[in-house]
Design a protein around this nucleic acid. Structure first.
Lengths: 147, 147
DNA sequence: TTAGTTGCAAATCGTTTGCATCAAG
DNA sequence: CTTGATGCAAACGATTTGCAACTAA
């Protein structure tokens, strides 16, 4: 399975034109294990000598979000939005309040909980976002006293 | 226990001066069951004939966040930050993708999960944020087909 | 008195938009 | 050819900042 073909298919099957920029952005996001900001993407493309405008980056991201190909979020709490591939198997993140690094966890403990909530509240649950905060191995000692 | 005394104590015990504005903002946030934006707070104060500047609202919110008295987040995904009291007993929210209303749930299924994660990853967990998305009772029928 | 707090206006930052040009289908 | 995609510059909205005036301690 060749990558280009895959991205093209993703785009086509969503009624989107198959442009170079869209392919490049999809490729970047697909290959990143962590959510990226619009600027991360812009900088990264520039670094690889791709000529693109920041507003185009935003427009492409919006389009991909609207088609549910990628997910927009804001975990770290700062002002920039984060974008990540909408992968079937979802992951959660641990965010270190010390160094702001993000760690990924695979397990998700919420399936049963969601079912019971769904019944109790008559709410049709489509997804969730879980972020866990704390201090990582390296930072826990440095920040221990600040508690 | 009189409210004013409480807010004053919260402020003093964090080394903050006990000002009228800080009391008013703490009072507002304490009495709201849902997270508020800086603008919500500003508008609400104005409505109650409190003369305050929007930049002061932001500054007070920043200060309270830095002291961990309130929590800053961004759940709904739009550009505005949300602020809520850092309550001991925490709650989670269901957000309706249709009408954007927020529903509050009391239970939290994550304590055991956090303990096991903490051990496994040598991460010192201090808290988490869980948001669940879907369609509420009223919207689930309207949006069912858009899936 | 003095360090911390506030108002005001201007600045900043992330993001969006109008419009003319360009490229995919 | 026609519709949608892009670049550019200007607009926007949320938040931040510099500075002078003020107020709690």
């Amino acid at each position: 399975m060749h990558e280009y073909d895959t991205y093209e298919e993703v785009l086509r099957s969503n009624g989107l034109k198959n442009t170079k920029h869209r392919n490049e952005i999809l490729d970047l996001i697909s290959k990143s294990e962590k959510p990226m900001t619009a600027d991360d993407i812009y900088i990264n493309l520039k670094k690889h000598n791709v000529s693109i405008n920041i507003s185009t980056v935003y427009r492409i991201l919006d389009t991909l979000v609207s088609k549910n190909i990628i997910i927009k979020s804001n975990i770290t709490g700062d002002s920039k939005a984060l974008y990540e591939l909408n992968r079937q198997e979802h992951k959660h993140h641990l965010i270190c309040s010390g160094c702001r690094k993000m760690f990924t966890v695979d397990e998700c403990p919420l399936e049963d909980y969601e079912k019971s909530l769904s019944n109790k509240l008559d709410f049709d649950i489509t997804g969730h976002k879980l972020e866990i905060f704390g201090y990582c191995k390296e930072c826990k000692n440095l920040y221990k006293d600040k508690k």
